[in-house]
């Protein structure tokens, strides 16, 4: 997966799949992001031009929804659950450990694009707390030592 679009053919293909209609803007943005994990400025400019949507509106929408990222994301998405159940079972210490091991604060991505760290408010599996989720895989009942093992298993 590239984090930059060498040529905009991929973006044009996605736009064509949605019929180039302005009302498909959000879907186009989501699909582009699904392929390259973030939304680079040149892709946004192309989308605005092809869908005939003002760039100001594209800017409004991409900054409004938390699902969109205007900065590159790492290969692995780490979500640390800070929900109530996880919180009382030590989520704060788990987060501290993850921050220390990755060198990232929540919302950040390292320069090697290995990890992106986010906190979430509840992953919906409170019985497994404290929970961290990496690339959609849930790691439950993590201790500080296991958090380290889990993170080290990702390249």
């Amino acid at each position: 997966m590239n984090t930059t679009i060498a040529d905009l053919a991929g973006v044009d293909r996605i736009i064509a799949e949605h019929g180039g209609r302005a009302d498909a803007l959000i879907q186009v943005l989501l699909d582009v992001q699904a392929e390259i994990s973030w939304l680079p400025a040149d892709a946004l400019a192309r989308i605005a031009e092809r869908l005939d949507v003002p760039p100001a509106l594209v800017q409004h929408i991409t900054t409004f929804y938390k699902a969109f990222s205007l900065v590159p994301k790492g290969r692995h998405r780490v979500h640390v659950c800070m929900g109530t159940a996880c919180h009382v079972r030590g989520a704060l210490r788990i987060l501290d450990t993850v921050e220390e091991l990755t060198g990232l604060a929540p919302g950040e991505t390292d320069p090697d694009l290995k990890f992106s760290l986010e906190t979430v408010n509840c992953l919906g599996c409170c019985a497994l707390g404290p929970v961290i989720e990496i690339d959609g895989k849930t790691h439950g009942n993590v201790s500080l030592a296991r958090t380290e093992d889990v993170l080290k298993s990702y390249e």
Partner: peptide, 21 residues
């Protein structure tokens, strides 16, 4: 012209000019 638009939302919402335009 759409030279100015809103960005972000909630308490962080603000107006922003698009430099290019």
């Amino acid at each position: 012209l759409h030279a100015v638009g809103f960005i972000d939302r909630g308490i962080r919402k603000e107006i922003s000019f698009l430099p290019e335009i």
